[in-house]
């Protein structure tokens, strides 16, 4: 896949001396969903704002669709739709008018059929004649997305689209993101909900303190860093872990009814068979076995912690 957004050694230092981006290099492939994960203040929003032209870079180069965002800004901006983090809407304006405004602003002729289609996609069509101030928070966020889609962008930036949004709407948005990707729209979303990245992203980038720590295929990342746990439940609780099982670094649960064994899914030998044989040999009886894969969240916490350490 060719890259649609290219960021090269991007640095941004704000006037107050804050170094928000410390040399970020990133290639975003056409048609993918890239999730940028990072804690608050990591530089996610600065990165997006700089690509969209709202913030000026201190140094570095950005191109979108092969055009330079500084010298060919008209071309790059036409390709980009931006959904900001804050819900900013003209309170007294009608929903459909705010969409028409966005479309015109991005240099597109009026097209009511298209605007209606976007409104329907976001379940806003019934409320097209309402003032934006009359809508609920979730609806207003949908209006923001609808505005960004009203000028048919090829690249859509969603800055924390599901912050403070209920579960149902979150699932709606994930479905929408997947539909858009099917239409060939590239989506970059920032989030600190790992669940979100896990649910929809093709690739995940982790950003912290202005540095991009890694960008990887989600599945590869899960595999590379993913750990699995096997929890062995016993019929009779044990006071101490038998010496015969010492080599497995087992953890005994507080009530002594389960033993936990951690292993890497990527290893050729997981040691599970040997462990289970050894457990039996030690005279313990199993009542149940559960396995659990570590989530992106755990991976992410580990990455950020390693960096601090």
């Amino acid at each position: 896949m060719p890259s649609i957004v290219k960021v090269e050694d991007l640095r941004k230092t704000y006037d107050n001396g804050l170094e928000a981006l410390k040399g970020v290099t990133l290639d975003i492939e056409e048609g993918e969903i890239l999730a940028l994960l990072g804690p608050n203040g990591a530089g996610k929003t600065t990165l997006i704002s700089t690509i969209c032209g709202i913030t000026r870079p201190t140094s570095g180069r950005i191109s979108v669709g092969g055009y330079d965002v500084q010298s060919e800004w008209r071309e790059t901006r036409k390709l980009i739709g931006l959904v900001p983090q804050e819900i900013n809407l003209e309170p007294f304006e009608l929903v459909q008018n705010t969409l028409r405004f966005s479309r015109g602003l991005f240099g597109k002729p009026r097209n009511d059929a298209l605007v209606d289609g976007v409104l329907k996609d976001l379940s806003l069509y019934e409320r097209r004649g309402s003032r934006t101030s009359e809508l609920s928070g979730g609806m207003r966020r949908r209006v923001l997305i609808a505005k960004a889609l009203s000028h048919e962008p090829r690249v859509l930036f969603l800055d924390e689209p599901t912050a403070g949004v209920d579960v149902e709407l979150r699932r709606d948005m994930w479905a929408l993101a997947k539909r858009l990707r099917e239409d060939g729209v590239t989506i970059i979303l920032t989030t600190h909900y790992i669940e979100e990245a896990e649910a929809i992203a093709d690739r995940v980038g982790v950003i912290n303190s202005g540095e991009l720590l890694l960008v990887e295929e989600k599945s590869a990342l899960m595999q590379r860093l993913g750990r699995k746990e096997i929890r062995i439940k016993l019929t009779e609780p044990v006071e101490v872990i038998p010496d015969a099982l010492a080599e497995y670094d087992l953890i005994r649960s507080k009530d002594g009814r389960s033993l936990i064994y951690a292993y890497k899914t990527t290893g050729e030998r997981t040691g599970i068979t040997r462990l289970l044989t050894a457990v039996q040999a030690a005279g313990l009886t199993l009542s149940d076995i559960q396995t659990r894969q570590s989530s992106l969240e755990e991976i992410f916490v580990r990455l950020v912690r390693e960096e601090v350490a």
Binding site: G53, I54, N88, L89, L105
Partner: peptide, 12 residues
């Protein structure tokens, strides 16, 4: 109210 972001990010 913050809606200026849209004008600043538009090809205008």
């Amino acid at each position: 109210i913050g809606t200026i972001y849209e004008v600043l990010s538009a090809p205008i």
